[in-house]
Design a protein around this nucleic acid. Structure first.
Lengths: 341, 341
DNA sequence: CTGAAAGCGCTAACAC
DNA sequence: GTGTTAGCGCTTTCAG
């Protein structure tokens, strides 16, 4: 217990630079220099100041600092959901990478709601973060404008949009969806079902229409859909497949908007003795670990989630550093030809 | 495109209250009143100001605002990891609940590292957040002191610690672990294995020792452990069970520090034709959806993750509002007697 | 209903 | 090496 006098009583008013300066018999500037690691402070003074800072339990006030410098170490991160397993992974990549460079992530969750997204971004903008990383592009026009007019790095991730605000890092969702559709057609499936979140999830919607396109080329189409109002988790995947089979027992294959839902459906099949893929094939999207650890590996599209996050954070940092940053990074995807489709 | 003059050129220097005030021919104070929703502004003036704000695309600077008021709408959230499925769920609960009250979550990830935790908390503290929500208590003494001396609400979540900093919401991990241990003993298992993260995960460590205590009462003990250096995911759960069985093929039951790992192990058993629970029983911890959707429901301890998050956020908000807040909320746990143990 | 003055805690830009 | 001055953009307080 190295408490100085004040014991554990919560200090009514926090200490300031001034307090430190007074105790050290130096000016505030000198303390500031020590704090910001600026050169030009005598080693002895520096040491004394550091000791006093520690003694006093002084914590700098970055509100004041940032206001004065108009620089911040906070990076705003906007994601649709944390329940959809994809986003914790990209967020981890972002947070790890930011943290290594002394930045913090301020995470906002839009719940796939464009209105929420807009107000969230507006609110975060008011903290004057160093940059923005945005996943999901349900963006309203106002959101787009805000991002375009922000004089800070903006990185869009996951889906590469048609008209990027600035930097973007991810993959062409449509291409990925097409690859999956082609694979399924080639495998000989003919009667398609789909389970996903409703149109709020624009990335998934994009993928769905891309798959339709491909199927139509061979006079096929996804005729049966089970859409939910929440990001599909395992329970919904299961429910989705039940609904679809009730609607059309002859379904060949069901595509799920994410792996988690697909896994739920697969579990259901194991339980009910439905042979996968002989009786019913299953395909997901994401390439989560979970799907690849199942007794039968899930057929899916693997994306580089952690890596996307990591690179997005790097892009923000490098852009702030004035380095040359590639505006568009396509990390691609990998079709995992598993055993479920 | 409702851009006023400046088109899409990024405005070099952001607009300020003053800009708005000048255009509106009023003082900054009047604009400020409108912005903060304070009464005492003529409806006409108010309307005009609002229009101008919109035209100008003015975004308030909360750094300045917070500095002036020493109030903030940011709540710092400290969690060990986003990969461990438990934390996205509590974080969702927190974010949802905060957002509804106009607050934002600033999420920091400690990676189960006390040193990182300390520096993270210090860094977040310097933003003068409205409150702190902390999960995981690997806390160093300095961390504890920082939190104790912060004159803002601090809520510890998940595990109820022996010496709470202030408010805490969660469950007694030890009790939960004991309940599980008793169940397994009652079921007749005698040869125990354990798979988990190493001691960095203090909650899991706590649970482990609590289980040992119970087992020792009947002259049993967990003799075989597979510890990893990362939060156990499915792949590790699988690897863990392989390692343990290699070490001791007569193992009755393996306890995993989380459901995800347990599921990985279960998948392995299905694959290898190991009968669960006849040949090998499996138990997890958390009660994730995934485990309960498997063909055989996972035996585990269910915790109220989303709810803990939700209540933690409410506690911060209510405390800030000066309402009476219960200092200790035990949300308990539920032993799920699944089919795997 | 509106405005003027002072200051939140820090740092940039100069002096010395 | 160190100090002084002037703000960053907002809000509080008090006047009118």
């Amino acid at each position: 217990m190295a408490d100085t006098e004040e014991k554990n009583r919560k200090s009514r008013t926090r200490r300031t630079l001034r307090d430190v300066a007074e105790v050290a018999h130096v000016s505030e500037m000198t303390v500031s220099r020590v704090l910001t690691g600026k050169p030009g402070v005598a080693p002895a003074t520096k040491e004394k100041i550091l000791r006093i800072i520690d003694d006093l339990g002084y914590v700098p006030n970055r509100l004041a600092g940032s206001l004065a410098t108009s620089r911040s170490n906070q990076v705003a991160v906007i994601i649709p959901s944390l329940i959809n397993n994809v986003f914790p992974e990209v967020t981890s990549g972002i947070a790890d990478s930011l943290e290594r460079a002394g930045y913090n992530a301020v995470v906002g969750i839009t719940d796939y709601n464009p209105v929420k997204e807009e107000s969230l971004i507006r609110s975060m903008m008011s903290w004057r973060p160093a940059g923005f990383i945005v996943a999901g592009h349900n963006s309203t026009t106002r959101t787009q404008n805000m991002l375009r007019n922000a004089d800070i790095p903006v990185v869009e991730i996951m889906d590469i949009p048609d008209e990027p605000v600035d930097i973007c890092i991810g993959l062409y969702q449509k291409e990925a969806a097409r690859a999956l559709a082609r694979h399924l057609v080639a495998k000989g499936y003919r009667s398609f079902g789909y389970v996903g979140l409703n149109d709020r999830d624009s990335s998934a919607a994009k993928r769905f229409s891309a798959m339709q396109e491909i199927l139509l080329q061979t006079e096929l189409s996804i005729d049966h859909r089970a859409l939910f109002d929440q990001p599909p988790d395992m329970v919904m995947g299961k429910q989705g497949v039940i609904d679809l089979l009730a609607e059309n027992p002859n379904l060949d294959v069901v595509v799920f908007s994410n792996d988690t839902a697909a896994i739920g459906a697969y579990m259901h099949c194991i339980e009910k003795g439905i042979e996968v893929p002989e009786q019913l094939a299953i395909a997901g999207f994401s390439g989560l670990n979970t799907g690849q650890t199942m007794p039968k590996k899930l057929t899916t599209i693997a994306t580089k989630r952690y890596e996307i996050g990591r690179l997005a954070a790097r892009a923000v940092i490098n852009e702030l550093d004035g380095q040359n940053v590639t505006r568009l990074v396509d990390l691609g995807f990998e079709l995992i030809e598993g055993e479920t489709a």
